[in-house]
Design a protein around this nucleic acid. Sequence first.
DNA 1: ATGAAAGCGCTAACAG
DNA 2: CTGTTAGCGCTTTCAT
Lengths: 352, 352
Amino acid sequence: MPGRTTLADVAAAAGVSVSTASLAFSGAGPIAATTRARVLEAAGTLGYRGPNPLGRQLRSGRAGIVGVVVGDSLRRSFRDPVSIQLLDGLASSIETLGLGLLLVRGSDEPGTDALNPLLATAAMDVAVILWGATTDSPVLAALRERGVPLVVVEGRVGEGDALIRIQDRKGMRTLGEHLLALGHRRIATVTLPFDRDGRQGPADAARLTHVRYEIARRRLLGLRDAGIEPTVVYETPASLVELGTAAGRELLSRPDRPTAIVAQSDLLASGVLLAARELGLAVPGEVSVAGFDGLDLPWLAPDVLTSVHQPLQAKGELIGRAVGDLLDGTKPRTRTLDVSLVIGTTTGPVPV
Amino acid sequence: MPGRTTLADVAAAAGVSVSTASLAFSGAGPIAATTRARVLEAAGTLGYRGPNPLGRQLRSGRAGIVGVVVGDSLRRSFRDPVSIQLLDGLASSIETLGLGLLLVRGSDEPGTDALNPLLATAAMDVAVILWGATTDSPVLAALRERGVPLVVVEGRVGEGDALIRIQDRKGMRTLGEHLLALGHRRIATVTLPFDRDGRQGPADAARLTHVRYEIARRRLLGLRDAGIEPTVVYETPASLVELGTAAGRELLSRPDRPTAIVAQSDLLASGVLLAARELGLAVPGEVSVAGFDGLDLPWLAPDVLTSVHQPLQAKGELIGRAVGDLLDGTKPRTRTLDVSLVIGTTTGPVPV
DNA sequence: ATGAAAGCGCTAACAG
DNA sequence: CTGTTAGCGCTTTCAT
């Protein structure tokens, strides 16, 4: 039965007290090299593999774990390269802090509102809500109830939560101005979800007043800031290429075809681009297409998407930093990352 | 300071003993409904959010956590839809067991051999090695050292470890026979990595004796079982579309062009298919292409890849089952899942 | 049905 | 530099 020997056994075997043995392992205190060696040797012969994390955790009051809450289905969450890159950066910064990353799905069963019981029971020192927390999110409520400090990414926060976000409003504005400068006036936009209800299609005025997800809301506002009133706001239920294609097909088959389409993500924009190709429309000759995120999408070759680039790696690291702050007791704050417009081959002057 | 009230406080407030209060929450024992209500009420007024998991964990000796070890970089691991789907199935079955999923990268820094320290220190009741454990893997060694029970997916195991795998050898054999029946004789194959050393290109005889990853080895053997001696064995360092394209370009530009190419994954096969299109070769008119995994790849339309389908969801669930067994003390065993050849539009009779 | 008592394995004061 | 002492918060016999 491995793992059954305890620090007490080792201490006894080495002929020292338990606390001394503890020091031999943690190094957090003065200890004679010889004693230390003796303890380590005793540990070796007894097959002791170092302090049991559970004991340490209870004693220190820390689990050494950061809960990362993603959507209901990992499959859906991680079909998006944006999530993956973010998680990658996050994992490395969490590990740097010596913490573990507990992956938690928000709801128990996809589609249901049943909360994942882990949110209420799993040990975690901090939680990161990775995507689209709305203020009234039950996930947030459950975690707040437990008093778990929160880092929210691209959402809305309460007092005491840390928020990480990018300047997407400004980025969208810059993109909008780019299109205006190219002479475009009939501009449509394909958006990320407004809400969790899975709606797809053009949004009417009523719907436009219910944009609960911050990302979609801010990116829409950015276009308005540039002075653009989209001819159509086409809402999608997720950032997926095929949904972009569906949107593109519909928008580009209309009589009042837009001369430019701005998508709120690169995957959606890619779909729009594919739809344009499918319909035999020249890009950017007949229609310009732009996205958001700045993904590397080699399969769009020879096209390179005009896109607002966000620093995903840096974002992941910043989240890690926020986690560290929360653990240190440093006052949580909002950190905003800059974005930059990178012009590719998919936007050009308005057709005459 | 939330979370500071303990069960003892609640018990005191309710005028019962700590043990009774414990029963009120766990329900694991006889307790009068009225007492229970009293305890719960006291908890409510005190703002007690239920038992602290850390205390429970120490007492029960269980962390309630399954460590899932993936490659060094999440970004790389999760660019593969196969990993994602597997992880999704796994997450849901782990949650069903009431356990948390601790995501652990194998090495600390990509490329380095430096082990992630979490492997040695993080609390976990079981570990799942998600991909390609070789017998001498330092990851395995570290976990075994700690006495953490192991579930290995598609690798080689030691005594006492559970192993989950699919019948890929048989699947490949079936695929090989399909191609032979179509008249193909000049068949090349594009493989998954043999080792962690990142090699790319045709493998010579010496290299072929050093296939350390089980997946590549077994899938190669499957072809041999069908009686196929590949004209070229092209090794790739990862399952990525672009690597398949590179392989395809090279294989299809040769004077002794194969009439069929079998890739060990669908992503690689997709790349090969794109390369064929790029070179203006008709598929399957001039070259047949087949893969492995059975992914849904709509962007290959109108083509549908001929592929050996593996039940990824079921695999995830089976891993969950194995985790449960290990925790129950049930003797670990090897579980093998069946696969099935699904013929698409990319394989056809050998050109005359 | 409830309570008292005994730790789970470790660490951190505090003495010595 | 080392040992003593006292818990971290909880669960679980075992009595009552």
